[in-house]
Design a protein around this nucleic acid. Structure first.
Lengths: 258, 258
DNA sequence: GAGTGGTCTAGACCACACT
DNA sequence: GTGTGGTCTAGACCACTCC
């Protein structure tokens, strides 16, 4: 088959790509658009390679290469003998796929507890609006919370401030947040159909303000690791701004360079 | 051909792998061991896919998959129409592959200047010895330097302290360091046959000590981003410990999460 | 035009999971 | 056993680079 020829199910769904890319990239874009459209939910299996190949009228190898890239980019998860599944934050083995904070002593202090401080509707300021691609004054949800060590006495480690577009998270409430077990991004998937796909972080060292110091139980001016995160869903669309302050006396932010 | 059967050039070079892995992984391990042995230098081309396939008596597709993974892991760089080349730090388009520090204003302040403060031979303390896999008291090279903005007046941004195993970097001197143009890791490749392949970083927020504050031109106690990096060469062998203090008023450490 | 990596195909067989 | 993803092969053709 001529990879340049448009035909069959492929062109029917009209991929918005420049349309002059390798066939497997067109397949990839098509699958991505179906993921975005919600054709398969997080955790569900997508059709098998042979079935996709038959439907799209390409060879299995071409489907394979498309799926390979999607798996690499954490959109899909392959499981030999079982199938290929839509990635989800709800059942990550690691829990918290995006959290790079790690205890210095890996033996101690495993999971962190959450304590919700605040969850309210506010109007977006200039900075939040700009980051989330909204207009100043648009409705946003503001959440503040602490992460604390599990052992007693619980010690605060992270102070998070989170902003979400109001339109996407209409029915999100303090009760829902407090009663949800598992990662917050799992709740977003299950209840709001918003799937975090990618994020950018900017790290800085800052001094704790009076309020921050009180909440984190440190002295005013204590150096804290400021982590500003912008999370994206499909199509490079930003859907969460997060400003985290980390105490790093007994934890650190780990990163791998290759 | 039975992939389990050992034969041809493959087994002659005796890969130390568990030997019961897919054929393409055996090829990958073989190529990796040749890279480690220095059979091809950084920047050089390795044999073409067809030639490798013929020599190793496997299909081109199998070689391709091995090379694909090596390219993905930044060991090799593919260039269509030209060949496949050994990755090098000397000619990175980005300069400084491992440096994640970025100016807040991307327009301003492009490259950073270096100022060498110190380069001397010392005996490894417990911490350095442990990190580099040496014995306490072994010879290590200690380097201290500043990175400063290029514009005038130059402003210090990073204070680096670097430790290297003395045996690997016998002839490294302050003169060599000062006169070298380009990334330090390029010098390590060219003069010492040490290629940095991977690194792990641990980030913290700390307060500037008196000495650090003086060198970085900030007040004592100013929050600084502490970046501890352990760099590895082939075979998970640590060959550099680095302790960097970053001023983050106008720069930040960027990270991408997927 | 010759050589290199990049794409696509078709078919065989292996490894794993479920039933 | 059946169905899934994973590996391997052989061959054709495309796209890019250099002569």
């Amino acid at each position: 088959m001529d990879p340049r020829a448009e035909g069959g199910e492929r062109s029917a769904s009209a991929p918005p790509t420049p349309t002059f890319s390798p066939l497997y990239r067109q397949i990839k874009a098509l699958l991505l658009s179906r993921l975005q459209a919600g054709e398969w939910k997080p955790g569900e299996a997508i059709p098998s390679e042979v079935e996709l190949a038959a439907r799209l009228k390409v060879s299995q190898g071409t489907v394979r290469k498309a799926v390979d890239e999607l798996a690499q980019e954490n959109h899909l998860v392959r499981r030999q003998g079982k199938g290929t599944f839509v990635a989800t934050h709800a059942e990550e083995r690691t829990q918290y796929r995006f959290l790079r904070l790690t205890p210095d002593d890996p033996g101690a202090a495993g999971r962190l507890r959450r304590r919700l401080l605040e969850c309210r509707r506010v109007r977006a300021g200039a900075e939040v609006a700009h980051a989330l691609g909204l207009r100043v004054g648009d409705a946003v949800l503001q959440i503040r919370r602490l992460l604390l060590t599990a052992e007693e006495p619980a010690q605060p480690v992270v102070l998070d401030e989170i902003w979400l577009p109001g339109t996407l998270f209409k029915s999100l409430s303090a009760e829902k947040l407090a009663s949800w077990r598992g990662p917050m991004y799992g709740l977003f998937e299950a209840e709001f159909d918003v799937r975090m796909v990618r994020a950018e972080e900017r790290l800085r060292a800052v001094a704790a303000s009076v309020d921050e110091a009180r909440l984190l139980a440190v002295a005013e001016g204590t150096p804290l690791l400021l982590v500003e995160r912008l999370s994206y869903t499909y199509g490079r669309r930003p859907v969460e701004l997060r400003r985290g302050l980390y105490r790093t006396e007994r934890f650190h932010y780990r990163n791998e360079l290759a």
